[in-house]
Nucleic acid binder design. Structure first.
Length: 253
DNA sequence: ATGGCTTCATAGTGAAGA
């Protein structure tokens, strides 16, 4: 079972890239973040023509998550239960016996901002919910834009970024909390090229200079076997790309 | 250099992203 995640930074703008990528890669599941699309405008028809069911939880301008699946999806849940939040950042569904959870973790803006405090409380609520979710669904994959680079090797300039949002200690501790639930960063289960990243700033020719961060991740529960995880840089080279690339993992349900 | 691009909501700029 091929599962994948991609922060598309506007599904409306990136729909041609997404359709091409689905045709070329044929994932069983693709989780999307930053769709920036209200549910009424979600392009379910054209994705259906491409062979994918879609469930989605979106809003105007910001955020928005979706799960595309070749097979039927069950038990769809939007948001973190019990955590009141206007922002559409979480969508869960069961596909072929695997619990798929699509997340768009808050960016946090800067470590002294209200948005950073929101990010940390959001992560606390996520972890508490996942603990229960793992009991209900031992085979679970948590895919999305984590807005956390787990380690210094996931950062092109660790010294320059030290203490910054996306790499700060409280954020990394929150990430470790997810690992303590038994979730594993699938990318690090395998030998990988050095300086592997999933996001590059649009400015400063950051992609060409490989000034990136690895913040788009697929975490896998221990009951789920994982045989590969790769970052696909190809869509980042296209005209008008998303600033994020897809990440793909192969799991056996 | 707190910018540099890109998107969205707007109708000239501003917010937000990471």
């Amino acid at each position: 079972m091929k599962i994948s995640t991609w922060n598309v930074n506007s599904l409306k703008v990136r729909l041609p890239h997404v359709l091409d990528w689905l045709v070329a890669n044929q994932p069983d599941v693709l989780c999307l973040q930053e769709t920036k699309t209200e549910d009424a405008n979600f392009p379910a028809d054209v994705l259906g023509e491409a062979g994918y069911h879609a469930v989605f939880s979106g809003q105007k301008t910001y955020n928005g998550v979706a799960i595309l699946s070749k097979g039927p999806v069950q038990d769809v849940v939007a948001g973190i239960p019990g955590f009141a939040d206007e922002q559409k950042r979480v969508l869960a569904a069961t596909v072929d016996g695997v619990r798929i959870i699509c997340i768009y973790v808050p960016n946090g803006q800067s470590v002294d901002s209200d948005k950073y405090r929101y990010k940390l409380s959001w992560l606390t609520a996520l972890q508490a919910w996942l603990k229960e979710e793992l009991e209900r669904y031992p085979k679970l994959a948590l895919l999305g834009d984590y807005n956390i680079a787990p380690e210094d090797r996931d950062v092109y300039d660790p010294e320059g970024w030290k203490g910054n949002v996306l790499v700060s200690e409280p954020e990394r501790n929150a990430f470790c909390g997810l690992e303590q639930l038994g979730l594993r960063d699938s990318f690090r289960l395998f030998e990988q090229p050095e300086k592997s990243y999933s996001w590059w700033d649009y400015r400063m020719m950051a992609f060409r200079r490989n000034m990136g961060l690895r913040i788009d991740l697929i975490l896998i529960s221990q009951a789920l076997q994982c045989t590969s995880c790769t970052i696909d840089k190809a869509p980042r080279k296209l005209e008008r790309p998303s600033d994020h690339t897809p990440v793909v993992a192969e799991v056996t349900p």
